[in-house]
């Protein structure tokens, strides 16, 4: 010890280096900023809902069928892709529970997109229904960003017959679970239609998401 040092002085080697301070500062800043930004799944804006019809009594919600595309014969869907939100998921078959509600994919398969196996196969005439988790306890699920879809975005479903059905989104809406419009979402269609469903809306601790995001799309191409 040099003369003049106080007995209580910490040893000089304890002084934090500039490098350590900068790293600590940057890490702390990064953590604080990402934490503040929050982690809520995107929700559809009003612009993506069905346009209010200017003609009173105008018919179904689906756009006029694209005459250049013929509906496909039924085939099991195996892969679902939504390029604009980075979804590329394997598919699994879903069933109905005792109350007739669609069972989502099992909780341990959050990366899978499910399709209602007793209903219309995607690409065939009718309303094909698909659903997947928005998130799990651990983090985002396959359809975490489904609410960000906009009219004109495409959804591609590749089937076991190696053909890919391409659907174009024409509406994205959010419905309260306790006021779910069955007929509008699941009702039959004259053309090849697709619905993609996940949870959305307010999240109530202990009760879960209060709503469903539903994407409406129609077949526009086959590749």
């Amino acid at each position: 010890m040099a003369p003049g040092d106080e007995p209580g002085d910490p040893p000089p080697s304890f002084t934090p280096s500039t490098k350590l301070l900068v790293c600590t500062l940057l890490t702390g800043l990064l953590l604080v900023m990402t934490a503040l930004r929050g982690g809520e799944p995107p929700q559809p804006s009003a612009a993506q809902s069905f346009a209010p019809s200017p003609r009173p009594g105008a018919g179904s919600t689906a756009p006029a069928a694209s005459p250049s595309v013929t509906a496909l014969p039924p085939s099991v869907p195996v892969r679902l892709r939504v390029p604009v939100i980075g979804v590329d998921a394997p598919m699994t078959e879903l069933t109905l529970d005792e109350t007739g509600a669609l069972r989502p994919p099992p909780a341990d398969m959050p990366a899978f997109a499910g399709w209602y196996g007793d209903g219309t196969a995607p690409g065939s005439v009718g309303t094909a229904v698909t659903a997947g988790h928005v998130d799990t306890r651990e983090g985002p699920g396959v359809f975490y960003r489904l609410g960000a879809l906009a009219k004109g975005d495409t959804i591609e479903i590749t089937r076991a017959d190696r053909r890919t059905a391409v659907f174009t989104v024409y509406a994205v809406e959010l419905y309260a679970k306790d006021a779910f419009p069955d007929e509008k979402v699941y009702g039959g269609s004259d053309g090849p239609e697709l619905r993609v469903i996940t949870c959305g809306g307010e999240y109530a601790e202990g009760k879960g998401y209060q709503g469903n995001v539903v994407v409406y799309a129609t077949l526009t191409a086959v590749t």
């Binding site: 109350t99 989502p104 988790h133 928005v134 651990e138 306790d178 469903i197 996940t198 949870c199 469903n212």
Partner: peptide
């Protein structure tokens, strides 16, 4: 056809509180 809403989310434990606290401590 199916009827009713689909139970397709669990609410990810964002743990933002802990992350925020940790970040604040580091800062």
């Amino acid at each position: 056809n199916p009827s009713g809403a689909v139970d397709a989310g669990f609410g990810a434990d964002n743990d933002n509180g802990t992350q925020l606290a940790l970040g604040a401590v580091l800062l």
